[in-house]
Design a protein around this nucleic acid. Structure first.
Length: 428
RNA sequence: GGAGGGAUGGCUGAGUGGUCGAAAGCACCGGUCUUGAAAACCGGCGUAUCGAGAGGUACCCAGGGUUCGAAUCCCUGUCCCUCCGCCA
């Protein structure tokens, strides 16, 4: 959520910035609601003040009246009247406040000034590129065919068990998948200074509101048929970022850096026909996530570091990639700036997203009430939150399969993963 | 699944219908003292929101209710703790 004060005081300039994201801020509607809000709030609060003052004076008045043997009914009647007027005004105010709140919580974050204009991923801008795509002297296969040949990656059985967009992995592929997880967690923990944590995969509505998935993006989620209103997590970002919901972190504890491996569940509503083949887009996939809570003045620099931590994984795996900055139109709802890392897939002869690293500034923190105590002011102030995939496991697995395939259909295991595979050097 | 107990400010913890936005201690900030520090003493110190300001309003787990008036009484829910049972 944006700072309501800011939205109120300079809606025109915010509208201009949000236009980069393709969002139209209804300035006139906002101003109108705001004017009514002031009126209703003023009315409700002055009635409340009157009611409070009267109730306060009543203790004494009732005592005196009783001592004098007087009837106290008229005293009570006046109070009753005040209360009724008060309740009506409160209801009006409450209703309007809900309207305003709903509108405000649907406004996306303001993009950084450096975010390029553009409508979709075609307008994203390349920042850097690493590694050279390998030249194959045989015809490359994609991971689906490679998996089918060895029998170690099986989409048909998964479709029987559940439906489309699921996978069954066996033997060496299942092990490679697990090795990737261990390798990434170890690297982030030992080399990049993140604390490994393990969190619930089922979350409540408040948590999803805090990180911005709700109320706007409910259709992307799997909701449990349970009257407690639980959802499966679409990313570790949700449970991990919510660790500090309604908390105040002491300055000397910052930055807080967490790395977390979880499955992610996404309904992929609206993506029919898109990436239907293989592991690219699944309803269930695993991810190692990086999350940081930092002082506001640090977040710009920390995003660069965080992207570097994700890139380090690809470099160690010797997978060619490029890093792009998302244009306004492709930027997520809560993000002020996002870098995507795209890995080279020889079967598609192009780079595909494998990580997304974002700075949310205080947007999530305001929803979460995640704060730190600023020693300079002594006051609790909003933190900045950031996160990024470090990396998506399924997509890394298929990138390894495709980039490390050999003419006979076997797959060489990258050097850094061999210790996690018991010294095994190839699959199949 | 059964039986009890609890949830109050950054923390501990008092508070069973009006004088309570809330005692006290700790922590923290400012000052006095000191060569410096500690101790001692004095003062300050919740959050959000509206307002130019004075000040107002809301908040004692959450949501309802009773009452002229609720941290306090009633109902529902959530979470935590103890005991019994069951269980990976």
């Amino acid at each position: 959520m944006l700072d309501p004060k800011l939205v109120r005081s300079e809606p025109e300039s915010i509208a201009e910035k949000l236009a980069v994201k393709g969002f139209t801020l209804e300035v006139e509607k906002l101003k109108e609601l705001e004017a009514i809000r002031r009126q209703l709030q003023d009315k409700a609060q002055s009635l409340q003040a009157e009611r409070n003052a009267y109730a306060k004076s009543m203790g004494k008045a009732i005592g005196e009246a009783k001592a004098m043997g007087e009837d106290i009914t008229p005293l009570k009647a006046k109070g009753e009247e005040l209360k009724k007027a008060c309740v009506l005004a409160e209801e009006d105010f409450g209703e309007l406040q809900n309207q305003l709140e709903n509108y405000l919580s649907g406004i996306p974050n303001i993009p950084d000034a450096e975010v390029p204009a553009g409508n979709d991923e075609d307008d994203n801008i390349e920042i850097r590129q690493w590694g050279e795509p390998r030249q194959f002297d045989f015809e490359v296969k994609d991971h689906v065919d490679l998996g089918a040949d060895s029998g170690l990656l099986d989409f048909e059985t998964a479709a029987k068990i559940t439906g489309s967009r699921f996978a069954v992995m066996r033997g060496g592929i299942a092990r490679l998948h697990r090795a990737l997880v261990q390798f990434m967690l170890d690297t982030h923990q030992l080399e990049h200074g993140y604390e490994e944590i393990n969190v619930p995969y089922v979350v409540n509505r408040d948590s999803l509101y805090g990180t911005g998935q709700l109320p706007k993006f409910e259709e992307d989620l799997f909701k449990l048929e349970d009257d407690r209103g639980f959802y499966l997590i679409p990313t570790a970002e949700v449970p991990v970022t919510n660790i500090y919901r309604d908390e105040i972190i002491e300055a000397d504890q910052l930055p807080v850096k967490y790395t977390c491996h979880t499955p992610c569940f996404r309904s992929e509503a609206g993506s029919y026909g898109k990436d239907t083949r293989g592991m690219i887009r699944q309803h269930q996939f695993e991810k190692v996530e990086l999350v940081q809570f930092v002082k506001p003045q640090d977040s710009t620099e920390v995003l660069e570091q965080l992207v570097g931590h994700a890139e380090a994984i690809l470099q160690k795996l010797e997978l060619p990639y490029k890093t792009v900055i998302l244009c306004g139109g492709d930027l997520g709802f809560s993000s002020a700036r996002t870098y995507d890392i795209e890995v080279w897939l020889p079967s598609q002869q192009r780079y595909r997203e494998i990580s997304s690293c974002s700075n949310f500034r205080d947007f999530q923190a305001r929803r979460l009430k995640a704060r730190w105590r600023n020693p300079e002011t002594g006051k609790p102030e909003l933190l900045h939150t950031l996160n990024g995939s470090g990396l998506a496991i399924g997509r890394t697995l298929l990138a390894v399969m495709e980039n490390y395939q050999q003419a006979d259909g076997s797959i060489k295991i990258p050097d850094v993963l061999q210790p996690y595979m018991g010294g095994q050097t190839q699959i199949g």
